[in-house]
Measured scan of single mutants.
Amino acid sequence: ELKKVVALYDYMPMNANDLQLRKGDEYFILEESNLPWWRARDKNGQEGYIPSNYVTEAE
């Protein structure tokens, strides 16, 4: 089971490997080892790295 998180803030990608975050949207965490960058997937199936301090665990 993948960990689900909710974006606390918008995040615009800095490079091609990053994933855009939209405040309030849910994302699945694929990999937590790259702290403070986590690999995530959005609801459309896009994958990339996000800043872990921009998300919180979903209820």
Score class of each variant (00 low, 15 high):
E1N: 12
E1T: 03
E1S: 04
E1V: 08
E1R: 05
E1Q: 06
E1G: 07
E1I: 06
E1Y: 09
L2R: 08
L2Y: 10
L2E: 06
L2Q: 12
L2H: 05
L2V: 06
L2F: 14
L2W: 07
L2G: 11
K3I: 03
K3V: 06
K3D: 04
K3F: 10
K3C: 04
K3H: 04
K3R: 08
K4W: 03
K4P: 05
K4M: 05
K4Q: 07
K4T: 10
K4G: 03
K4V: 08
K4S: 07
K4H: 03
K4D: 03
V5T: 03
V5P: 01
V5E: 01
V5F: 09
V5Q: 03
V5K: 03
V5N: 01
V5R: 03
V6M: 07
V6A: 04
V6H: 05
V6G: 02
A7I: 00
A7V: 01
A7Q: 01
A7E: 01
L8Q: 07
L8Y: 03
L8M: 12
L8F: 04
L8T: 11
L8K: 13
Y9R: 15
Y9P: 02
Y9I: 08
Y9E: 13
Y9H: 15
Y9M: 15
Y9L: 15
D10Y: 02
D10C: 01
Y11H: 05
Y11R: 15
M12A: 14
M12I: 15
M12E: 14
M12R: 13
M12Y: 12
M12T: 14
M12Q: 12
M12G: 05
P13K: 06
P13C: 03
P13F: 00
P13G: 08
P13N: 03
P13T: 03
P13V: 04
P13I: 04
M14K: 13
M14D: 12
M14N: 15
M14Y: 05
N15T: 15
N15I: 08
N15P: 02
N15M: 11
N15Y: 04
N15W: 05
N15H: 09
N15F: 04
N15L: 13
N15E: 12
A16I: 04
A16R: 09
A16Q: 14
A16E: 14
A16W: 06
A16N: 10
N17S: 13
N17F: 11
N17P: 06
N17R: 13
N17T: 13
D18F: 10
D18E: 15
D18Y: 14
D18L: 08
D18S: 09
D18A: 12
D18R: 13
L19P: 02
L19T: 01
L19S: 01
L19H: 01
L19E: 00
L19K: 01
Q20Y: 10
Q20L: 09
Q20I: 07
Q20A: 13
Q20H: 08
Q20M: 08
L21E: 01
L21H: 01
L21M: 08
L21V: 08
L21F: 00
L21A: 02
R22M: 09
R22Y: 13
R22F: 10
R22Q: 12
R22N: 12
R22G: 03
R22C: 13
R22P: 01
K23I: 04
K23F: 03
K23H: 11
K23T: 06
K23L: 04
K23W: 02
G24P: 01
G24T: 02
G24S: 04
G24I: 01
G24F: 05
G24A: 03
G24W: 03
G24Y: 04
G24V: 00
G24M: 04
G24D: 07
D25F: 06
D25H: 12
D25W: 13
D25E: 14
D25Q: 12
D25M: 13
D25V: 11
E26V: 10
E26L: 12
E26Y: 07
E26S: 13
E26I: 12
E26Q: 08
Y27N: 02
Y27L: 09
Y27Q: 00
Y27C: 03
Y27D: 01
Y27H: 01
Y27A: 03
Y27K: 01
Y27M: 02
F28Y: 08
F28R: 12
F28M: 14
F28T: 11
F28K: 05
I29Y: 00
I29H: 00
I29A: 04
I29T: 04
I29G: 00
I29S: 02
L30R: 04
L30C: 04
L30D: 02
L30K: 08
L30V: 12
L30M: 07
L30G: 02
L30W: 05
E31D: 09
E31L: 06
E31G: 09
E32T: 12
E32M: 07
E32S: 11
E32Y: 07
S33V: 09
S33L: 09
S33K: 13
S33N: 08
S33C: 10
S33T: 13
N34L: 15
N34S: 15
N34F: 15
N34K: 15
N34C: 15
N34A: 14
N34M: 14
L35E: 11
L35D: 15
L35Q: 12
P36R: 11
P36M: 11
P36N: 08
P36S: 12
P36H: 06
P36Q: 13
P36I: 03
W37N: 15
W37A: 11
W37Y: 11
W37H: 14
W37I: 07
W37Q: 14
W37G: 05
W37M: 13
W37C: 14
W38Q: 11
W38Y: 15
W38C: 11
W38G: 04
W38N: 07
W38H: 11
W38P: 10
W38R: 07
R39D: 02
R39S: 07
R39Q: 10
R39F: 08
R39H: 06
R39Y: 04
R39P: 04
R39N: 07
A40E: 00
A40D: 00
A40C: 06
A40S: 03
A40P: 00
A40I: 03
R41M: 13
R41G: 03
R41A: 06
R41Q: 13
R41L: 08
R41N: 02
D42A: 14
D42R: 02
D42G: 06
D42V: 00
D42F: 01
K43P: 07
K43M: 14
K43F: 06
K43S: 12
K43W: 06
K43L: 11
K43Q: 13
K43Y: 09
N44L: 11
N44S: 09
N44A: 10
N44F: 11
N44C: 11
G45R: 05
G45A: 08
G45D: 09
G45Y: 09
G45N: 13
G45I: 01
G45C: 05
Q46K: 15
Q46A: 14
Q46L: 12
Q46P: 02
Q46C: 14
E47V: 09
E47N: 06
E47T: 09
G48M: 00
G48L: 00
Y49G: 03
Y49V: 11
Y49R: 15
Y49P: 02
Y49N: 14
I50M: 03
I50F: 06
I50V: 12
I50H: 02
I50S: 00
I50L: 10
I50R: 00
P51A: 04
P51G: 03
P51S: 04
P51L: 09
S52K: 15
S52T: 09
S52M: 14
S52I: 09
S52N: 11
S52W: 10
N53V: 13
N53C: 05
N53S: 13
N53I: 03
N53D: 10
N53F: 05
Y54N: 03
Y54A: 14
Y54C: 10
Y54M: 15
Y54L: 06
Y54R: 08
Y54F: 15
V55A: 03
V55R: 00
V55T: 06
V55M: 03
V55Y: 01
V55N: 01
V55Q: 00
V55D: 00
V55G: 01
T56S: 11
T56A: 15
T56W: 10
E57Q: 11
E57Y: 11
E57R: 08
E57H: 14
E57L: 09
E57G: 13
A58W: 06
A58H: 07
A58I: 04
A58E: 15
A58Y: 12
A58Q: 08
A58T: 09
A58M: 10
E59P: 11
E59D: 06
E59L: 07
E59S: 15
E59V: 14
E59A: 11
